[in-house]
Simulated assay, not measured.
Amino acid sequence: MAEKRIKITEEPSNYDRLDEMDTLEIVANINNEDKKIADAVELVLPQVAQVVDETAKRFEKDGRLFYIGAGTSGRLGILDASEIPPTFGMPYDRVIGLIAGGDQAIRKAVEFAEDDSDQAWKDLQEYQVNKNDVLVGIAASGSTPYVLGGIADAKDNGLLTVGITNNPGSPLSEDVDIPIEINVGPEFLTGSTRMKSGTSQKLVLNMISTALMIRVGRVKGNKMVNMQLSNTKLVDRGTRYIMEELGLTYDEAQKMLIKYGSVKLAIDAMK
């Protein structure tokens, strides 16, 4: 029988005797490994751009963006989705993150939740997904049953499917419409994919959601003109945006912001 190929995410670290290193040596070596991440992400930019453009088309038809994952990957998807409404003023039901094991798994691991290949589609059914939606499966290994099962069911039902993985040639890459394979190499701590793999996933998710929001008109120039005014800092930021755009004093700009409720509406009202 042929020997099973070891996944890149499970390959031994390039470093050994970590427990014998002094602290500065440990953090310096982690930093050396982290320097490789941006270069690995650069290689998948065409695929990331394709995901953004295809998702933007579906957003115009009231489509939504879903992330599914387990463990760190699931948490990263939820983090990205949760930041869209306050940053861009987008409703909470347009970008949605789901994690194996449900919301309780955000803080505490749920044993064997990632091994259920049927649960992701059940979770998605609560949102009445349709062919205008996009499903992004996130799995460093590229073989998480929860993710693979959700992707398979989504594809059968006409959704656009995307896979973010750190193992090129993995089942996830083979199953999706658009694979994003980020090869960051072995982890500093063998198999600890919350490190380089997780960081690379966070970078790609940042790109997807931010570029998508720009494409669908939630940004003007380089400003977050649709952000929610949920604290004093954001009210101050919004006021300064209006000052810069309209040439008003601080007090005048703040009055406009309070009156119209968003930077965009205030600026549009004056033009």
Rank of each mutant, 00 (worst) to 15 (best):
T199V: 11
S117W: 03
E3P: 00
L257P: 02
Q47C: 05
I84N: 03
S13F: 01
I37K: 10
A28W: 03
A2D: 14
I138E: 00
D93T: 13
D39Y: 11
G150L: 08
I99Y: 07
V52I: 15
E114F: 13
T249R: 13
Q119Y: 07
Q50Y: 01
P179Y: 09
D156I: 05
K255H: 05
I106W: 06
V219T: 08
R17L: 07
L148K: 00
A81T: 01
E187K: 02
K255E: 09
D236T: 09
N32E: 15
L189V: 13
P145W: 12
A2E: 14
E54S: 09
D153S: 15
I208T: 06
T165G: 02
A113N: 09
D53S: 12
Y15F: 15
L159H: 13
E174H: 11
E174T: 07
N166G: 15
K259A: 11
T23K: 08
V147G: 00
V27E: 00
G101C: 08
T161Y: 05
K196C: 01
K122N: 15
G149K: 06
V204D: 01
T232C: 04
V27Q: 00
D268L: 09
E10M: 05
V184T: 13
T165L: 04
G221R: 10
I242A: 05
L24R: 12
E11G: 05
Q254T: 06
R218H: 12
G101Q: 01
I8R: 15
E114A: 12
L229Q: 10
V219P: 04
I164N: 01
K155F: 01
D118W: 07
G102H: 15
V162T: 10
L205M: 04
A266P: 01
E252C: 02
Q47I: 04
